[in-house]
Simulated assay, not measured.
Amino acid sequence: MTEQIELIKLYSTRILALAAQMPHVGRLENPGASAMRRSPLCGSKVTVDVTMQDGIITEFAQTVKACALGQAAASVAGQNIIGRTAEEVARARDELSEMLKSEGPPPGPPFEGFEVLTPARDYKNRHASILLLLEATAEACASIMSQNSQ
C-alpha cells in the first residue's frame, strides 16, 4: 500500500500536466544537428533537432517516447531551451543529474521547473528517462559547436 501511495505522489497532477503539454513536438526541416538517445533500462527514446546561431539555440524540436516522468522532463526543457547556449544546456543536464542521483538542489534558472521531478530521486530506474532530453540536446549542441569551430 505504501508503495502505491508513493507512485501516486510521483505521478502527481503537475507531472502529468507537464507531460500532456510538451512544447516543440516534431522535427525541424533543416536542423543544424540532431541527436537520439535511448534508455536501455526502460526503452524510453528521444530525438532532438537543434539549430543554433551565434552559439544560441534558435530552433528546437523533439520527439519523445517515454514514461510520464521523461515526458515531463522534456516539457520543462522544451519550455526553456530556445535562447540557451550549449553551456547552459550542459549545466542543466549536470545539475538535474546531481538532483536525482546525489540529492543536489534543482537546476538553476531558467530550468528550475525540474524541481517537480524531485520525488523521482527514489526511483533510480527512472533517472535515465528523465535525463534523456537534456543529454540529447547537449549532444546536438556540442555537434554544432564542433562543426562551427572547424
Rank of each mutant, 00 (worst) to 15 (best):
P40R: 13
P40I: 12
P40M: 13
P40Q: 12
P40T: 10
L41Q: 12
C42Q: 09
C42A: 12
C42D: 10
C42H: 08
G43L: 13
G43H: 12
G43V: 11
G43T: 10
G43W: 12
G43F: 11
S44E: 08
S44W: 00
K45R: 15
K45L: 15
K45W: 00
K45H: 11
K45P: 04
K45G: 03
V46C: 05
V46Q: 05
V46R: 03
V46E: 06
T47P: 00
T47E: 13
V48C: 07
D49R: 05
V50G: 03
T51C: 14
T51N: 15
M52N: 00
M52V: 05
Q53P: 00
Q53F: 07
Q53H: 14
Q53K: 15
D54Y: 06
I56H: 00
I56C: 08
I56Q: 12
I56N: 06
I56E: 07
I57G: 03
I57E: 04
T58W: 07
T58S: 14
T58G: 04
T58E: 12
T58H: 07
E59C: 04
E59R: 14
F60R: 04
F60T: 07
F60H: 05
A61Q: 04
A61Y: 06
A61C: 09
Q62D: 00
Q62F: 00
Q62L: 13
T63E: 15
T63Y: 00
V64S: 03
V64I: 14
V64G: 03
K65R: 14
K65M: 11
K65G: 08
K65D: 13
A66D: 01
A66T: 04
A66Q: 06
A66P: 05
A66F: 04
A68H: 09
A68V: 02
L69E: 01
L69N: 06
G70S: 05
G70L: 01
G70K: 02
G70P: 03
G70R: 01
Q71E: 15
Q71S: 11
Q71G: 12
A72K: 05
A73G: 08
A73H: 00
A73Y: 04
